[in-house]
Design a protein around this nucleic acid. Structure first.
Length: 300
DNA sequence: ACGGACTCCTGGATGC
DNA sequence: TGCATCCAGGAGTCCG
């Protein structure tokens, strides 16, 4: 399931394959993939055909490729992608067989010749859109050129962004009674974390998912941020986490960080620290995995 | 205003 | 064996 490391793997793959590529033709096979696009399919195709793609950017789990006019002029618009839980962006040879859940196909002509950039999505929570680029609400005066798609403006910076504000995040924790995991998953508070990496970071920090955020000490908050960054960097180095082939890189290959997971999906298996069997608990219509000994509610 | 519940969707796994 | 139900999840929306 694509969280920050998986989306970053895809971004890097796209950077190599599509930067400076020109879009020759766009075929919308399933219009439901355009649910975040402000216009219809015709408008989507029209906004892309003939334009070139600039180097891809990412914030949290959102990915976008700025568009250039045929004369090379920058356009304040971008092709925006969100993979949802099963979306894939694939670079394929022209005319390769259609994937079963192919939603959008784009023929692109780049430095490496002609390819197809395809958006494939089994569970259809993902989307492509053409969206305007605007200055971020948290713009840094030292970097006035930064631009974000409008639909990404409400998303916080992610913890690998050098301009992520640790201090502001700690203040946010002090100001809410929500459980710590709910805050980690709130993309307006900190971006890029989903259910898997939330559980991994909490396990590493020995925090219970329901621990009220305001009771997390400054020291623990710093440990938690460090754990989130560590787990992201490690997962990135291992190509991301793949379950049942739903997440793959642009060449269709799985990552292997699943082998390194210590908490997520491991109910009944012994905790790698203390040996107690991990438990699975319902949380916000999904699951949380934790060690009942290492990760207890504190200060109640 | 805040936070929790609900919604979109598909197919693999599970249960009777 | 076959049908029904459950479950997974990001982020927008809705409601108390």
């Amino acid at each position: 399931m694509p969280e920050l490391p998986e989306v970053e793997v895809v971004r890097r793959g796209l950077a190599a394959a599509t930067t400076a590529a020109r879009i020759r033709a766009v075929d919308v096979v399933d219009e439901r993939a355009l649910k975040r696009h402000p216009g219809d399919a015709l408008d989507f195709v029209d906004a892309l055909e003939g334009r070139a793609l600039a180097a891809p950017s990412r914030r949290g789990k959102f990915l976008w490729l700025p568009l250039r006019e045929p004369d090379g002029a920058a356009r304040e618009r971008a092709l925006v992608a969100h993979l949802g839980m099963s979306g894939q962006l694939l670079v394929r040879p022209v005319g390769a067989d259609d994937e079963r859940h192919l939603c959008i196909r784009m023929r692109v002509d780049g430095p490496g010749g002609e390819h197809e950039l395809r958006f494939v999505d089994q569970r259809r929570f993902g989307s492509l859109a053409v969206d305007a680029l605007v200055p971020p609400v948290d713009a840094d005066p030292a970097h006035p050129g930064e631009r974000l798609p409008t639909q990404v403006r409400r998303i916080a910076r992610d913890p690998l962004d050098p301009r992520f504000d640790d201090r502001a995040f700690r203040a946010l924790l002090r100001g809410t009674d929500r459980g710590i995991k709910a805050v980690l998953l709130d993309q307006r508070a900190i971006a890029g974390i989903g259910n898997i990496y939330a559980d991994e970071a909490l396990w590493r920090t020995r925090l219970h998912w329901a621990q009220p955020a305001r009771t997390v000490s400054t020291r623990k908050a710093n440990e938690l941020l460090a754990a989130v960054r560590d787990v992201f960097v490690q997962a990135l180095a291992e190509g991301g986490t793949s379950f049942d082939d739903l997440y793959v890189n642009v060449n269709g290959e799985s990552g292997y960080f699943e082998r390194s997971l210590q908490a997520y999906g491991r109910a009944g298996e012994p905790c790698a620290r203390c040996g107690r069997p991990l438990v699975r608990e319902p949380f916000a219509n999904r699951s949380s995995f934790r060690c009942p000994r290492c990760q207890r509610l504190r200060g109640r």
